[in-house]
Design a protein around this nucleic acid. Sequence first.
DNA 1: ACCTAAACCTGGGCGC
DNA 2: TGCGCCCAGGTTTAGG
Length: 267
Amino acid sequence: MPELPEVETIRGQLDKELRGEEIVEMEVRDRKVFVGEEQELIGEKIKQITRVGKYLFMYFESGKGIVMHLKMTGRLVINDTWYETAKHTRVIITMKSGRKLYYWDTRKFGYLRVENEIGVEEKKIREKLGPEPWKIEKEALLGKFKKTGRTIKDVILDQRIIAGVGNIYANDGLWKSGINPHRKASSLTLTETGKILTSLRTVMERGLRTGGASDNSYLDAYGKKGHYQEEFLTYGKTKGECVKCGRKLTREKIGGRGTWWCEYCQR
DNA sequence: ACCTAAACCTGGGCGC
DNA sequence: TGCGCCCAGGTTTAGG
């Protein structure tokens, strides 16, 4: 699933490729994933693509824009003719240069939504979400941890507390920090909170450098796989062993999501 | 107010 | 081979 590193990879590619392009044609194949009137977008010029957490914002010169979320299986791919006839291609945006942007999504959880004032919409979403792991200090994070009775696994996946962390980086980050996912967030010390923060930054930076995790359906805007899945520390390793101590990893659902950890190394 | 669980979807993997 | 079941998990919403 696209988490912050995957979404940021796509953002950079879309921004580079589509900045300055003008939309000449819109094809919506599935209404569920497209909110708005697509004909309004003909003639719009793309100014920039920004990102907040896992949300993408396509800005037009007019002030309008599209807010996009890939959720579980969404892909934004440029110029790959395979998507012309692919079963799950939901939206096709054609540019004046002839380039095409395909929105493909098997499960249709994701969406593209037209906004009249995209800047206002981005601000609204930014205010709803917490800071990204690089934009918060351990003292402030600990303050948030103290206010809740939930497990740490649950809390770091909460976008209102920290934005951009999904299940892959949550599992790997907790392993790296040596913290047991069952711990109550409110029981953590300042030192432990600091460890979680630096671990999350480390695994997400690694995700960014490797182009994201493609163990699922994720592909970048060029249709290429990332490589973080080759370096998973715990995520999805149901029969795997701890990279550090060699003991078998434990698997259990926490907060309704798959969680893998080492009973010995994570206390 | 806080927390949990269901809902949204589809394809893939498994056991039989 | 094929059927039925479970699983994946980001975000919103309903309910306790």
